[in-house]
Amino acid sequence: MTQETFKNEKEIRRFLLGEMAEEERSAFEDRFIAEDSGLFEELGVVEDELIEAYVRETLSPAEKTKFERSFLTTETRRRRVAFTREMIDRLIAENRPAVKKTEPVTAENSVWNLLAGLFKRPSLAFGAGFAALLILLVFGLWFLIGGNRGGGGEIVKHATPTPVAPTPTPVKNENGAGPANETVVNAAPNRNEASRPPANVNAENINKPVPKETPPRAVTATLALFAPTIRGEGRTSELKLTNETTGANFELHLESQDYKTYRAELVDADGRTIYRSGKINARNSRLGVFFPAAKLKKGDYFVKVYGFNAAGGEESAADFQFRVTRQ
């Protein structure tokens, strides 16, 4: 099957991705401003679909680079991308059956603590016996399968299927004790990173409620980074990502808060800027910024932070370094 396209579709994509030379571009602009209202409408459609493809990460690497360099150059356009992402997430959410909410797994409420609770309550003596049996069974299976990896984490992981997820717990080591720059990788549902759905909505069932498969879970990692002069100690912080990780929340600890607003750039080891944040407000010399996991391959990265001075100009405020590992 071939996709039905507009007559000018290729030309429109070239225009939107900044591939036209100035003369050709001017002639094209004259057409949509002065001559061809149909062309203008098609432009809007193709632009929307480019944004959607960017959000769904289906652009080719070359197109993606062009899109980011030629298209994502204004605040208005970045907002349109954000809007598209939120709209799609919201529409998909509306088409999903309600997810049963359960308590997130925390230190106080883990599988182990639940099992321990069985032993603590005399009225649940039978439960205690059952729990002991369950533990034996789980460990037995684990040894049989040859599980010589780390223990408890795996059990907890399998015991908490999607979409129930623990709450992210960024490391906030304010007093300087303990490991600096440490990473906590946790699974957390993220409204803006709703996973792509299976395609089981079609023309025939538009008027019917659609049964859905369990959506793949959205996993967000969290990393706290500290300005080198605070607690860098020459160590490179590590961000551990899995294939399920959709993004990483960074908590950037500045040496001092010299500006009210900042923005952050993600730069790879070759010095290429691969992601730019919008304006961020600092609180207690800390900045929160989210980077999509798709931007983060295995390797070393820098987060460059710029502050906005009173005149609205940008000044370099801090640099952070971290390393991405993939599991």
């Binding site: 959607e52 509306e94 792509r196 079609n202 538009i206």
Partner: peptide, 16 residues
């Protein structure tokens, strides 16, 4: 209509 249009994935989007 909006849900049916957008609740799809890249593999089956055109067909859907």
């Amino acid at each position: 209509l909006l849900i049916a249009y957008y609740d799809t994935d890249e593999r089956t989007m055109i067909a859907t």
